[in-house]
Write a protein that binds this DNA or RNA. Sequence first.
DNA 1: GGTAGACCTGGACGC
DNA 2: GCGTCCAGGTCTACC
Length: 307
Amino acid sequence: MMQGSSMDIRLPEDDEFDLPSAVCRYGFYLLAPNVWDKATATLRRPLHVPSGPVEVVVGQQGGVLRVVCDRRLRRGELFQVRRQVERMLRLNEHLGPWYELYPAARRARFGRLFRSPTVFEDIVKTMTCCNVAWANTVRMNAQLCELYGGGAFPTPEALAGEQPSRLRQRTSLGYRADWIITLAREVVEGRRSLEKLETRWPSAMYLLPQLETIHGIGPYAAANMLMLLGCYTDVAIDTETIRHCREHLGWPIPNGAAASPQWRRRIQEHYDQYVPFQFLAYWYELWMGSSLEADDTPSDTDTAAGA
DNA sequence: GGTAGACCTGGACGC
DNA sequence: GCGTCCAGGTCTACC
């Protein structure tokens, strides 16, 4: 049992928060340094505070999240831990409208998609998802944490001083090493502010142009980052999306059409019926295996019957 | 605006 | 064990 600081985060009474659902519905929870303990339903990982990395364990006891650290922290550092936990679990995100529109999502506790404690980590993780099999994504993140974070996820400072060629040599990142070092240097040298992207209730119109200036962020990665920043209007279209549209929606998308602008537009237009929750609706279909409109959108008949 | 090819790695497969 | 092919998203050059 860890001996250190701890705190309770009280969940809103009307919130139907469920920790396993908030963590395990998005694959980032499987990437280092995150560790999900299924037996105890707790999330463990190191977080950065000014005095160095601190290992934290997050568990849920009814309407309270209990956060336990492996060492004593100053009050200000404890607050920083809280902010990072809140970000990972999207505790400050208001999903009421989503649940009101789609009761099936509420019943399934489907709405909070796990993310990282920092925007930097989210961007790097998204880059490691691109053009690579999942097993390699897992490997890349493990290597980054082991070699540049001492077990924690590396900070921009830890990566900015490294040579891209050496990062390539030591990890499986390949050409992504250049993108990651470039981003880390931009952040450290003050040429790029990632905090700016965290503006409350941003719109895609505001965020997309900024995301697209990051080297290594293309259409898929930008849409994925929008989702991670709390803006769900764009669907991150990859080969999995194409497979889903073929198998679930029965669309005759030919092989090799994954990058076709025409199909991309058609996919986005299809999910635009769920505005402003296009990504959530798509992800719900992908994970739950059923579409929201099939059994959930209240019809006029239902409403009339209910009345 | 759309398209083709290079980029890089690991896994699968055939020899 | 070795070589070849393929999957995966982004970038760049070209039309």
